[in-house]
Design a protein around this nucleic acid. Structure first.
Lengths: 247, 247
DNA sequence: AGGCTTGCGTAACATCATGTAACAAAAGGC
DNA sequence: GCCTTTTGTTACATGATGTTACGCAAGCCT
């Protein structure tokens, strides 16, 4: 893929240039925009791979702009907002944003999100794995979702608990994409592998779960190669995954 | 099934319209309601498949409304609440809510729950097997409902007790569908295989029954392959079932 | 480099759901 | 009625999952 072209939309001049600079320093082509007009100008003028859109623009509501843009063309959008309250997040998704980041954010996290969305846009995959797919291969391993069996490269069966299996599925559906603990927890909920789980936030269940899965699928759990830690962010599954539809 | 019709009950206008919109965008027919009266109006006016009910309405308590509705007719209800404290969750279930979601919630999670509840409500009607069908084959086994005989893949007869047989029938009628203990217990009642069964809830009769059936039809009851446990949910029968009408 | 702060890994414990043996209560058959 | 079979209950063992606490490592500042 060519160098990704991003638009940074924010009404605060300082934030705007800061983000733009930061993204440029990290290998992206970023353009600052202040108004919807500027956005449209860029959209007409050439390829735009992703828009970073502040929710709280002076005159207009970012969510509405996002909704409007979405209707017109299919540009990935990440909403940025000072309000981390989740009902705003909901509005964002509702409107079709690809992701949502709360200000102030960790720069690394921003990069991770941007990469993830670009990556996803490229393959149009979502967080949750597709149903029709049920056989996964990765790094010599083999996972059959139908029988719920995991086979090591050496060919012997490894028993995974339900949660471990669920985690593996989430990872397999998002190779090379850094996932935060919250995203993982949500995905586990959505796949229905965790019913009575409270909305998360307190404990470190995900960390422990990751540790347990590592113990079963990593050659040396002490220096993981498949399920790596992204310090300050979460975890990434670093393996190429091939899938086979089963029906 | 036709497009599901949902009621969104919340006293906050914004939340109400937001959820309604969101659900509509995802293929549901959703109607905003503010008061119990509005709910009743819809209930009388036409089919309602599911009610999303906020627990903290201004004047009334959602839990109480839920209890009242439940007494009158059998509409599935999902309680929504800002209070994630577990005792509220418990109250919800006590009162007969089908599920419970804490605000703020992940939109995907909401959809998942809604679908799950609808799915459940939808199939409870078909829990009982059809009469005309009386020969079942599954994983090499053969069950003749007329003669009440079960034959193993190796060809010898296995004697099942009445309850075991009833359980098997329920499972055969619902392959690949996870059933809760309550659903199973109810289905057993309906098939007339259990008359004086107490109102349920206390003991673990289903667990023991499942164990006994496993002992007869599983190769290795310790690691069941046909009658599997869904932790936190119930049991699933994981085998393809073919049936033959017997006229 | 050294010290401080933060995030992560993980052992040890707490909790909860399930499996099941052993017993008790019912239901039938004679 | 007495015995046999079936079904339900209880109690305990087991295994899965969540929580907590502590130590280590990575980054950061000086």
């Amino acid at each position: 893929m060519a160098i990704p072209r991003l638009l940074v939309v924010d009404d605060d001049a300082e934030t705007r240039s800061m983000m733009t600079q930061f993204l440029q320093q990290n290998g992206f082509m970023a353009f600052p925009c202040e108004t919807e007009d500027t956005i449209r100008h860029h959209l007409k003028g050439g390829r735009v791979d992703l828009i970073l859109l502040d929710v709280m623009l002076a005159d207009e509501n970012g969510v509405e702009i996002c909704a409007r843009l979405r209707k017109e063309q299919d540009v990935p959008v990440i909403l940025v907002s000072a309000l981390s309250a989740d009902h705003h997040r909901m509005k964002g998704y509702e409107v079709g944003a690809d992701d949502y980041i709360a200000k102030p954010f960790n720069p690394e996290l921003l990069l991770a999100r941007v990469r993830a969305v670009l990556h996803r846009a490229n393959r149009s995959a979502s967080l949750v794995y597709r149903r029709s797919v049920s056989v996964f291969r990765f790094a010599g391993w083999h996972y059959d979702a139908k029988r719920d069996e995991v086979t090591s490269p050496q060919g012997y069966q490894v028993a995974l608990s339900r949660k471990e299996t669920a985690l593996l599925k989430v990872l397999l559906a998002n190779p090379h994409i850094p996932l935060t603990r919250d995203e993982i927890a949500n995905a586990l909920d959505v796949t229905g592998e965790a019913q009575g789980t409270p909305p998360e936030g307190s404990g470190r269940a995900i960390d422990v779960l990751v540790g347990r899965l590592r113990g079963k699928i990593e050659t040396d759990p002490k220096s993981p190669e498949l399920l790596r830690t992204e310090r300050g962010i979460g975890y990434v599954f670093t393996a190429d995954v091939t899938t086979e539809d089963s029906a």
